[in-house]
């Protein structure tokens, strides 16, 4: 029987060269919104052609194949260390095959490990409480892979409310101001139009992780929490009003989607974290149901 090494390799192969349908649909809609003959429109045309070309040729959408992150949901009692070791091996093989550029650098020596494996890399996180994919009596493992470009990771930000410069208080309006400021500061550096993950609350580390986790949600879903849904719906048009546009050249679409979550906070702390994903939002899900794997 095939295992997570082979499945992981296939997941990586598909993710580097083929955007998921919801991301591609959002990119095409953004292209159609820009007026004909504008630079913004032409840039979006180049992006659409690049997406098509990468899929047909099975080549990487972007030469920065990013940081490799696996978010794994497993039933209780699963051998998580076995899955982790297999996924790490899948990353090694994918790098050897040229599917991934080697992006794991020792921060002190400057040495690149050459196989995308190092302290904390690839990122593999396990979650036991998500049974949404499993029917009664089924053993289901889901693996969400995210390949996130370095340029977009660099423009992520964390704020602490209240913030005097932004005149942002400890309320939802204050949260909105933080996100507006972060996306203004990002300009085109994160390869706009981006997809924005927001986490309201939590501790410093949990807040950043929570923001990144929002990037796993389908772009066309609706937040089940009405307050967070409202926040997302207000932020999307407001961020696009900034006019940064594709690649920061000006235009109607600065962000493709906003996804927000929340974590309870300590009374003394109020963090707002923003994760930015470039338009080349490479993520895919692998579902293994009773030993049978399928890419969704």
């Amino acid at each position: 029987m095939a295992g997570f090494v082979e499945w992981g390799l296939e997941l990586i192969r598909r993710t580097t060269s083929d955007l998921s349908p919801d991301v591609e649909a959002a990119i095409r809609a953004a292209r159609d919104r820009e007026d004909e003959g504008t630079t913004a429109r032409n840039v979006m045309d180049v992006i659409v052609r690049n997406v098509e070309l990468a899929r047909s040729g099975g080549t990487p959408i972007c030469q920065d194949t990013g940081l490799v992150g696996f978010f794994v949901h497993v039933p209780r009692g699963t051998d998580t260390e076995g899955i982790r070791a297999d996924l790490v091996e899948a990353v090694r093989r994918a790098t050897k095959e040229g599917l991934l550029r080697s992006n794991a650098v020792d921060p002190l020596t400057g040495r690149n490990s050459g196989d995308n494996v190092g302290a904390g890399l690839p990122y593999v996180a396990f979650d036991f409480d998500d049974a949404s994919e499993a029917g009664p009596g089924e053993a289901v493992v889901t693996v969400d892979l995210m390949l996130k470009g370095g340029g977009s990771e660099n423009v992520g930000a964390q704020y602490r409310l209240p913030d005097a410069t932004l005149k942002a208080g400890r309320d939802v309006r204050g949260v909105e101001k933080c996100v507006l400021d972060a996306i203004h500061k990002a300009q085109g550096f994160g390869c706009a139009p981006g997809i924005i993950g927001v986490c309201v609350g939590g501790d410093r580390a949990g807040s950043y992780a929570g923001a990144k986790k929002q990037l796993l949600r389908p772009l066309d879903d609706r937040n089940p929490d009405p307050d967070l849904a409202g926040l997302e719906e207000r932020l999307l048009p407001a961020l696009n009003e900034l006019g940064v546009g594709p690649m920061g050249f000006g235009g109607k679409t600065t962000v493709l989607a906003v996804k927000a979550g929340k974590l309870h906070r300590h009374p003394a702390s109020f963090f707002v974290s923003i994760a930015y994903c470039c338009w080349a939002d490479r993520r895919r899900r692998l579902v293994v149901r009773d030993g049978v794997a399928e890419l969704v």
Binding site: N50, D64, G188
Partner: peptide, 8 residues
């Protein structure tokens, strides 16, 4: 165009 690795 950032990200357009294949096309470029």
């Amino acid at each position: 165009v950032g990200g357009a690795g294949t096309l470029l």
